[in-house]
């Protein structure tokens, strides 16, 4: 007799089937390459690229080089600053879009830049910012300045173009969560005595947290690994981790060192992601308990304060 499956078992089997191809794809093309990178970072450097199969911590030792440390620090501050500014700009954008009657049109405007190759858009910025570029020639024509300002090939230009490149990735998730946000809560907060800003910070921000985390992850991770932007609009002191990895792979041909830097990149990104996930979990964990007597109530209030603390 043929064995019949219970609905629950059948569902589980179907789930495995649906998830199968995806799992296989990620194992083959994500997990395995990541494993190779981890492995390479502990290998000895091959003379003309590649590795020799011999365990060593050389790559990690080489990283403790002041000039590399500088790059890591710089990458961090550029990424954190760009991400922070991106989200800061994206919040009012998402808010305005959620409130607007022309949502589809505005969404469309945000998606348009994706139709053009990112390199071309970076070159467009070069022609805008360069010494004989659009801004400088405009300012000189007006007579505000005599000689071209140095707007490009510095860290400022890198931050500016990074924000430009990744802003849509911050706006889209923020827009979707703000769109779902119940704006009458802001009225309620105002009614209860909050100022305009107070209402947004105390009531809106906690309720669009998932959008803020997504925006953070979507912008911080790609910015942290960026290499074309600092390469094309950055100066001598704009090198980021991404550039080092490219150099170590293609020029210096120190594959273990490139792998070690990739590890750093991945680890710092993971810290960010886990921090966000932890925050989300903690939010869910706060569940109620049930007690009936009056003493229990008073006890509850006290316990409640020692747990969370009030300002």
């Amino acid at each position: 007799m043929k064995k019949t499956l219970k609905p629950r078992e059948r569902e589980q089997l179907l789930g495995t089937m649906y998830g199968g191809p995806m799992g296989l794809w990620f194992t083959l093309f994500f997990t395995v390459p990541l494993g190779i990178i981890i492995l390479y970072s502990f290998m000895k450097r091959g003379l003309y690229g590649g590795v020799e199969w011999e365990f060593t911590l050389d790559a990690y030792r080489q990283m403790f080089n002041p000039s590399f440390a500088m790059v890591v620090v710089r990458t961090l501050w550029i990424s954190v600053l760009s991400t922070f500014l991106c989200i800061l700009i994206a919040i009012p954008c998402g808010y305005a879009m959620a409130k607007s009657k022309h949502q589809t049109f505005l969404l469309f405007l945000i998606i348009i830049p994706f139709w053009t190759n990112s390199l071309i858009r970076i070159y467009a910025w070069i022609s805008i910012l360069s010494t004989e570029g659009f801004i400088n020639s405009l300012l000189m024509r007006i007579g505000l300045i005599d000689s071209g300002l140095k707007l490009i090939y510095n860290n400022g230009a890198v931050v500016l173009v990074l924000i430009y490149m990744y802003l849509p990735f911050a706006i889209l998730p923020l827009f979707t969560t703000i769109d779902k946000f119940d704006f009458s809560l802001l009225d309620a907060a105002r009614d209860l005595g909050a100022t305009k800003l107070g209402a947004i910070v105390k009531v809106m921000f906690p309720n669009i947290r998932s959008g803020l985390s997504t925006a953070f992850i979507f912008t911080f991770i790609p910015i942290f690994g960026a290499y074309t932007v600092p390469l094309l609009v950055g100066g001598k002191d704009s090198t980021m981790i991404g550039n080092i990895i490219v150099d170590q792979v293609s020029k210096t041909r120190n594959w273990p060192l490139a792998s070690a830097f990739s590890m750093i990149l991945t680890l710092i990104s993971l810290v960010g992601v886990f921090w966000m996930l932890y925050n989300g979990k903690r939010e869910q964990m706060q569940k109620g308990s049930k007690k009936t007597t009056q003493q229990a109530l008073e006890h509850n209030i006290k316990a409640h304060h020692s747990l969370r603390g009030t300002k």
Binding site: D182, L185, D187, A188, R190, D191, L192, P206
Partner: peptide, 19 residues
């Protein structure tokens, strides 16, 4: 502004802070 008035409102949709 609403926060400076001696009135408070009970909203139709409750408007409780979900967080």
């Amino acid at each position: 502004p609403p926060d400076k008035r001696q009135s408070n409102t009970v909203f139709q949709t409750y408007a409780l802070f979900p967080h």
